[in-house]
Amino acid sequence: MSGDHHGSSAISERVRHVEALLEERGLVDAGEIDRRIDEFLAGGSPANGARIAARAWVDDGFRDRLLADANAAIRGVGLSMAGGLQEQRLKVVANTDDEHNVVVCTLCSCYPIALLGPSPAWYKSEAYRSRVVRDPRGVLAEFGLELPADVRISVWDASAESRYMVVPRRPDGTDGMSEEELAGLVTRKGLIGTAAV
């Protein structure tokens, strides 16, 4: 457990108390709470984003549709941005030899959970949110991603209604790989833009 989660037992008591109070007043029931937790955990996975990225690598038509209208393109492969409390607009941006993309939500934590699963704590931290827009190259270097000076970096700031995902550059030497093998190369950080793939 990290230092961010201090006083865990005190707050755990307070949450239990409020939950009991709300159950007493008929506003929630215990079964519903467990069901919503399960729904959240089952609601998304970086395997979904990885599948989209790999498809974009092998299918130029899909890639074009994805970059033009991501919500429609992902519906075509059985995924959706409508699983949460409201449908979110999705924009997908693709890295090239000349341009690298990275995603943040400076205001809080907006993130395409359906495609990436629950977000990592660093994505929600004030440190990442404040710094990646001021010094993206420096922040990416801290993640171990040293980009050549002539690669342009675009930072995409998500909001309540708009979410972003990055298609990483297809790694060299992967010509013989199947779409499924390619998807296995793609990481959550690659889809956020803080790793190369």
């Binding site: 990290s2 943040v104 400076t106 205001l107 990592p120 704590a121 660093w122 931290s125 004030e126 440190a127 990442y128 949110r129 404040s130 710094r131 827009v133 001021r134 922040v139 801290e142 993640f143 700031d157």
Partner: peptide, 12 residues
Amino acid sequence: VGGMVGFPAIVE
């Protein structure tokens, strides 16, 4: 907080 200075290093 976008662009604000003074926050620490990012911890993974």
